[in-house]
Design a protein around this nucleic acid. Structure first.
Lengths: 204, 204
DNA sequence: CTAAGATGTATACATCGTTCACATCAGGGA
DNA sequence: TCCCTGATGTGAACGATGTATACATCTTAG
């Protein structure tokens, strides 16, 4: 850490991440170039390579950060959901996150999760585990793995359909009503899921 | 149409589409460059611009073709589903399509559907309408708009989670069981959906 | 204090999307 | 029949990008 020197940046790694994140929000995925990141960080074009192996590694880092933000965003919607209504509130938050950070959300799912980024793998695993946990808390009597997969898929799909403009996303209220309704529909059937295809979910 | 001349290609438009499609399957989205398409079509780097305004237009054309293929793929799974089991078979086909053509499927949803490509808009609208129709045929007594949105979201989400390696996709049978189970769970609750958030779906 | 490692710079190369001026061909009107 | 106009393909060129390599500068452990 130096303040005096202008040669060394101080914390280029974090600066790159912040710049990348900003470019993503401003210009979408296309605007996220390593050179643009370097420019925004006030550094030469190749400097970021000291901290990220290549562009994909940077994107993975941004995606991992996105997963962590999503997790705290969901937790803020409700810290420990244990009723269908509370779980639905978390689902609504999930979709809202996607709509508020479309480029980031797409970066998180645009490509198969790079297995060489253990940071990214860990972040997605945390989300997956979180979903499983709150589903289990809400429906202790059913197969938590199967149900959590199903509810995650439903909410994830809703997020993407909204992102693609296939559904009416004109107001947050309409989106919330849509998501709540869909999730509740699934929950009405939850007891029927006991013992269905246990093991269909991988450990991830 | 000329055979004799080697200067004019004959049907460059179609050749570009085919080449783009092949590159997508072979090298993923990153391999789909306009120049590579031109090379594969045996034509100069700028020739494709006579038929596609820019790279995005080509990608949109590929995506539109993908939507049409998906539609016929679903229809092949069952021409006119009218029972939950038949509808589930279509859902399984949807996910299988995604797994068999991952790069194409991602290209179809990687970015917000470009509204300037009426071909693409029409193709996605056709899919949307198709889903609505078969859901209405299967559950005449419920709000078809709301239910079709929900089932589409569920299946779409399952496709993406499988694509991202979040679920066990090791064998087609496991995937089919997973999807069938999730869809049936939703259907058990279908009667409960009557009258929920009608109008939450846009005309698309 | 100094040598070594960490961090940033400069230069260079291949590739890409895209533009523009030009070449070639096909088909219809004189 | 001829030619000329529009459609189609070519070539060179520009700026941007990802990345490799060699070099410069700073920090810090010994």
């Amino acid at each position: 850490m130096s303040r005096s020197s202008s040669y060394h940046h101080g914390d280029l790694r974090a600066a790159c991440l912040r710049a990348a994140r900003e470019l993503l929000e401003e210009d979408g995925s296309a605007g996220l170039s390593l050179r643009a990141v370097a420019r925004r960080a006030g550094v030469s074009a190749t400097a970021p390579y000291r901290h990220y192996a290549d562009r994909e590694a940077l994107v993975s880092a941004v995606a991992a950060e996105g997963y962590r933000e999503l997790a705290t965003y969901l937790a803020r919607a409700h810290p420990a959901p244990s009723t269908p209504d509370e779980l639905a509130a978390v689902a609504v938050a999930y979709v809202r996150f996607a709509l508020e950070h479309p480029a980031l959300f797409r970066a998180m799912f645009a490509e198969p999760c790079d297995p060489t980024s253990e940071e990214r793998v860990a972040a997605t695993a945390a989300i997956s585990e979180y979903v499983r946990t709150i589903v289990a808390a809400t429906f202790p009597e059913v197969d938590a793995d199967a149900l959590s997969t199903t509810v995650w898929a439903l909410v994830h799909g809703l997020a993407f359909l909204h992102l693609d403009g296939k559904l009416d996303s004109s107001t947050p209220e309409i989106v919330a009503a849509q998501v709540t309704s869909a999730v509740h529909a699934l929950f009405h059937a939850a007891p029927a899921m006991s013992g269905t295809v246990a093991g269909a979910q991988r450990g991830v």
